[in-house]
Amino acid sequence: MADGGPPDDDISLPRTAVNKLIKEMLPNMRISNDARELVLNCCTEFIHLLAAEANEECGRQAKKTIGPEHILAALKELGFDHYVPEVEDVLEDYKVQATQNKRKATKLEDLGIPEEELLRQQEELFAQARMQQLQMDQEEQARVAAAMATASADNGATGLAAAAAAAAGVSSSSSDAAAATAGMSAAQRQLAQFQAIAAGALPPPAAAVAPFNPAGNTSA
């Protein structure tokens, strides 16, 4: 940096990355903003210096592309020989990771299926799984609703039978109550239902009940 000022944001390291490195290296140390800015400037200046030296090394070898060997040679030329072993370890790790990624890409190519098609098939599988889960949920809700309706009908029949038995003056056992209900006309069963509701044996119906007709005639 010729002017000694802070580096331009377009040619400097990301501040978030530098702050993360500082936190990892000094987790229990508080660093002022001025110190963070200074570390950022130093890192950027080091990279510029190293890149310039690697570029010169590349030119001396009549190469057009800066490679890892040029970076290592630049470190040695600038007097940072102690960085070389660690840089070489990182380079080896990168090569291993690159080889693994290449093998994965080769396997996909061997399948003869483009990546776009694989993504489309994956989305279809996800959609089918969601539809199956939705269908299972709907079936489960239907089973629960049917069970609740059956239980409600059974409770209503039991209460009506008990009311009919009471109106007929028989015992409240299930067999006697069923016999009493079976011998009643529609009008008598409706009357027994009203009596059961009034006595609290049955809950009020959700819908309006038709007026009681003693004659049992349902026609208008």
Rank of each mutant, 00 (worst) to 15 (best):
Q132N: 01
N217Y: 00
A98K: 10
Q195C: 01
L75F: 05
I47Q: 03
E24K: 13
P6V: 15
A201C: 05
E117G: 08
V84A: 08
D8F: 02
A163V: 03
N55F: 10
K102R: 15
P27T: 09
R130H: 02
V209G: 00
Q133H: 04
D89R: 09
G112P: 04
D10H: 10
P214V: 12
A35Y: 09
C42A: 15
L72A: 07
A207S: 05
A220W: 06
P211I: 08
A146E: 05
A178Q: 00
M148W: 07
A192N: 03
R36W: 06
A51M: 15
C58R: 14
I47D: 03
K102L: 15
S152C: 07
N33W: 00
E124N: 07
M184W: 04
D8I: 02
D3C: 14
P204K: 08
P85T: 12
A62I: 12
M131V: 11
K95W: 11
L125N: 01
L118I: 13
C42D: 15
D81T: 14
L40A: 05
R189K: 06
T16R: 08
A207H: 03
E109L: 11
A208K: 08
Q141I: 13
S171W: 02
D137V: 01
A208R: 08
V90S: 11
P6Q: 15
I22L: 14
T106Y: 13
I31V: 15
Y83R: 03
N28Q: 11
A151R: 11
G112H: 01
N155S: 09
A206V: 12
N213Q: 03
T44K: 07
P14D: 13
N213H: 01
A54W: 04
L160C: 07
N55Y: 12
M184Y: 06
D154L: 08
V84N: 03
P214A: 13
V39E: 03
F126Y: 00
S12Q: 09
P211F: 07
Q100L: 14
N41F: 10
D34E: 13
E37Y: 13
G159L: 12
E56N: 14
R36C: 12
Q133L: 09
A74R: 00
T16D: 11
A192S: 06
A178I: 00
P211M: 01
D137N: 01
